[in-house]
Design a protein around this nucleic acid. Structure first.
Lengths: 402, 402
DNA sequence: CTATTTCGTCATGGCGGTTTACAAATTAGT
DNA sequence: ACTAATTTGTAAACCGCCATGACGAAATAG
C-alpha cells in the first residue's frame, strides 16, 4: 500500500546525520538507549527483537554503550521461561545527568535527573520574581544550578546540559526570551546571561510541561493538546510524539484565541481573547478576589469550601476554555486534551463546564479531557528530562565528552 | 548545542525500515531521487555534495536508478566553469506515473503525472454529483481512470498508484470516506468500490490542495495553513513539510471553529461556527443570491461588477475568516496562510477585511496571507503528485514492480 | 539425566560507503 | 598552442557494520 497521504520527513530528513554507516551506527545506538530506557530492564535478545536487528549486532552496540558508561549490566534475569535467562540491561544511574531549571513567577527551582529518570538533587527558592530585574534573578538561578550540580557530582553524575523553563515566549534559537509578561522581561539572551560549561537550552514552560506529560504521564497519547495556565494561558501541541514549535517558536498561544470577537479589549490588541475570560486575573476579578500571592491555591481553597462566587467564576472560565478548545480540537484533531500546570488543581471546578462546551460543539468523535498527574511539577521535570532525551538521542556525542 | 527542544521522531522512527544496511541503501536511493527531482538536472558530483555522500557512492546509486528506469542521463552539461563538465541527470519521463482523481461537487477529473511532474494525460466530466448514489459516480470515475491510464500507457508510462481527492472527511486508513456532506456520502470504502490493480489512496480535497501548494507553489514555505472552501470550509495544516493528519484523520476542520459562541445554530451541534458566516450558503444568503450551479463564479462576477451587496457579504465573510484564522495562527504560528481552492478566486474581496482582522488581533509578528496560484486545480494535482512522491520516497519498491 | 529452548558470543561473509588513484574534459595562464 | 589547474566519473582496495551460522552456557520439560 502507498503511504497513507504524506507525513513529515518523507526522505528521512528527520536527522541531520548523513545516511552513512557511521550515521546508521549512531542511530542504532540511540535506538538501543531509547528502548532500554522506555521498557525497563531488558536482555540483549529482547532489545534485538524490538529494534529489528540481530542479537549479534545488539551485542556489539551494548558493549560500546556499557564501555561508555551509559548502560549497566544488572545480572541474570529471573528465569521464568524455558531457556537460558538473559542478562538484564538498564540505563546507567551514574553517567550523565540532565539539569532542569524553572523560573516561575514566584519561585525558582532546579533539579538534576539521571538517565533513569530519577530526580537526584534539587533546590528551590521561593520569592516573587515579578518585576525584578533579570540579572539578579538569573544570578540566583545560577547559584541554584551550581549547588545542584555539585550535589549531583557527589553522587557520581556529571551534567550533560541545562534546560531552563520560563513563563514566556522563547525564540526558535532556544536561547532568547522574547517576551515574558509575568516577569516583565523582553529580549533576553539567557545563553549570554547564564554562563555554564555545558549546553544550555531555554524553552517555554508550557512546552516543557507537555513534554513531561508525554514522557512521564501514564497512558498519555502521542498526539495531544496540553493546556496550562500561569496568569497567561499557554498550550502546547504535541504531534506524533514531538512538540509543534511554530515558525518563530511561538506556537500554542491559546490565551489570545478569540472567544467573543467583540468582547473586552485585550492588551494584545485583539478583543475577547480567551485570557479575558479564563486568565487568572479575569477569574479573580469575577470571583471578587484581589490579586496576590498563591492565587491558584486561594481559588482552589475557596472553591473547595463551597464559595459560590468562586465556583461560578471557575465555571465560566471553563466554558470560555471550552469554546477556545473547540476551535483547537477542530483544527488539530488531537487524541486528547490534558489540563496541566496550575489548571490541574482547579480541574474539579473547570472540567464540567469545559467538557460540556466541548462536547456540545464538537461534531465528530468526542475528544477526552484529562488532568495531568504532574500538575505544577511538570515544567521542571520536563526541562530536566529534555536533556536526558537529548543524551538518549545521540549517545556517542556524550560518550566522547565523558 | 543540544537539540533545540524536542521535535518529532527523535530516534529515527520516521521510517518503518530497520536501521540496517539495506534500509540505508533504500533511504539513499530515495534521497538521490528527491534531490534530482527537486533541483532539476544535476551531475553526480552535485548530488553527492548535496546529500553528503561521496561521488563514488552516488555513482553506484545512480547506476541502479538508471537501470531501474527512474533516472535518465541527459548527457554532458554545458561547461560554464573550469573542470570537466558533469553529466546531467534527470528524473525519467517514461517510468511510473501518478494517477490523481478528484470527486468534486459538480465535476469529476482524473489526470496522470509523470515523475518529472508533467501532466501527461487528463479527463474531465462535468455534471452535478450532489445527492447521486455513490456507486454510479464511482463507476464513472473508474471509467475516466481507465481512459487516462490507457493514454498514459501509450506514452510509455505505467500507473504506480491512484490517489482520490474527495470533498469530505477521510479516515486515517486513507480508504474510507467517513462523511462527505456535499455529496451526501457516509462511510464508503472506496478501496472496495473502486477496484484498480495498483495502490489506491483516498484523501481530503483540502489536504491534497495544500500538498500541491507545498510541492508546486513557488516560494511556499515549509509550515503554513492552507484554507480552501467548497461549501464547507476546510483547512490543512502543513508542519515541517508534512501534513498534520490528526488522530482520526480529521485535522483541519476550520469550518466549525466557533467565531461567535452564541451565534446561529449549526448542523454540527455548535453555535456560531465559521461556516455560519463564511460558508458558501451563508455568503450567498447574505448577498441575496440563490444557491445554484457555479456559485463561486457568480459571486466573483457580481463582485467584479461592483455589486455592493455581494461585496459586503464577502467583506463580512473575510472578517469572520479573520477571526477564525487568528485562533489558528495563535495556536500554530505558521509561516503564512494560503487561500486556495475556490477561495482563491474570491480573494480580492475577502483579503482586505481578512487581513485587517488578522493583523489587528495578532500580537506577535504579522502572519502574511497569500493566494494560491493553483486555485481550484490544486487538489487534483496534489493527489497525482502524492503518488509521485511515494515513488520518490521508495524507489526500489516500484523498481521491483516494474 | 537427556532433550529442548533461549541467550550471548565468535568467526565468517556480504554489503555499502570511503579512500585513493587515475583518466577524461574543460578553463586559465603563458 | 601548450601546460597547469580544476572538476568529473570510475575503478580498486579498504574498512565498518550488520547478517548468518555455529557453539557453549544456562535454564525448563519430560
Amino acid at each position: 500500500m502507498t503511504a497513507p497521504l504524506h507525513e513529515a520527513h518523507p526522505s528521512g530528513s528527520g536527522r541531520a546525520l548523513p545516511n552513512t554507516q557511521q550515521g546508521m551506527r549512531r542511530r542504532n545506538l540511540a535506538k538501543v538507549m531509547h528502548t532500554v530506557s522506555a521498557e525497563g530492564p531488558l536482555s540483549r535478545a529482547a532489545v534485538a527483537s524490538r529494534i529489528g536487528l540481530t542479537r549479534a549486532a545488539v551485542s556489539t552496540l551494548v558493549d560500546e554503550l556499557i564501555r561508555s558508561g551509559l548502560l549497566e549490566e544488572l545480572g541474570p534475569e529471573r528465569p521464568g521461561r524455558v531457556g537460558r535467562p538473559g542478562s538484564a540491561l538498564a540505563v546507567s544511574g551514574h553517567g550523565p545527568a540532565g539539569i532542569g531549571a524553572e523560573i516561575g513567577v514566584d519561585h525558582l527551582a532546579v533539579c538534576a535527573v539521571d538517565l533513569r529518570g530519577e530526580v537526584r538533587s534539587r533546590a528551590v527558592r521561593h520569592g516573587a520574581n515579578r518585576g525584578r530585574a533579570p540579572e539578579p534573578v538569573i544570578e540566583e538561578i545560577g547559584e541554584l544550578v551550581r549547588r545542584v550540580v555539585a550535589e549531583a557530582e557527589r553522587e557520581g553524575l556529571w551534567p550533560a546540559g541545562l534546560a531552563v523553563a520560563v513563563p514566556g515566549l522563547v525564540a526558535r534559537d532556544a536561547r532568547t526570551v522574547v517576551r515574558a509578561p509575568n516577569l516583565d522581561w523582553r529580549d533576553l539572551d539567557l545563553g549570554d546571561l547564564l554562563p555554564v560549561d555545558f549546553p544550555l537550552t531555554v524553552g517555554n514552560e508550557a512546552n516543557f510541561g507537555a513534554l513531561a506529560e508525554l514522557w512521564l504521564g501514564d497512558g498519555t497519547p502521542h498526539d495531544f493538546l496540553h493546556v496550562s495556565a500561569e496568569i497567561g494561558i499557554g498550550a502546547a501541541v504535541v504531534v506524533d510524539g514531538g512538540l509543534l514549535r511554530g515558525t518563530h517558536g511561538f506556537a500554542g498561544e491559546l490565551g489570545h484565541v478569540p472567544v467573543q470577537p467583540d468582547g473586552p479589549e485585550c492588551p494584545c490588541g485583539g478583543r475577547g481573547c480567551l485570557e479575558q475570560y479564563a486568565g487568572e486575573e479575569a477569574v479573580l476579578r469575577a470571583a471578587g478576589l484581589e490579586p496576590g500571592e498563591d492565587r491558584v491555591g486561594l481559588l482552589a481553597g475557596r472553591a473547595a469550601e463551597g464559595d459560590e462566587d468562586v465556583r461560578r467564576a471557575l465555571r465560566d472560565a471553563g466554558t470560555a476554555l471550552g469554546v477556545a478548545l473547540t476551535g483547537a480540537v477542530n483544527l488539530l484533531d488531537p487524541e486528547s486534551v490534558v489540563l496541566g500546570g496550575a489548571l490541574a488543581g482547579l480541574a474539579p471546578w473547570l472540567l464540567p463546564s469545559l467538557e460540556a462546551e466541548l462536547d456540545r460543539r464538537t461534531a465528530g468523535p468526542a475528544c477526552p479531557v484529562s488532568v495531568s498527574r504532574l500538575g505544577p511539577a511538570g515544567p521542571l521535570l520536563g526541562a530536566a528530562h529534555s536533556v536526558v532525551r537529548s543524551v538518549l538521542d545521540d549517545p556517542v556525542a556524550v560518550a566522547e565528552h565523558a
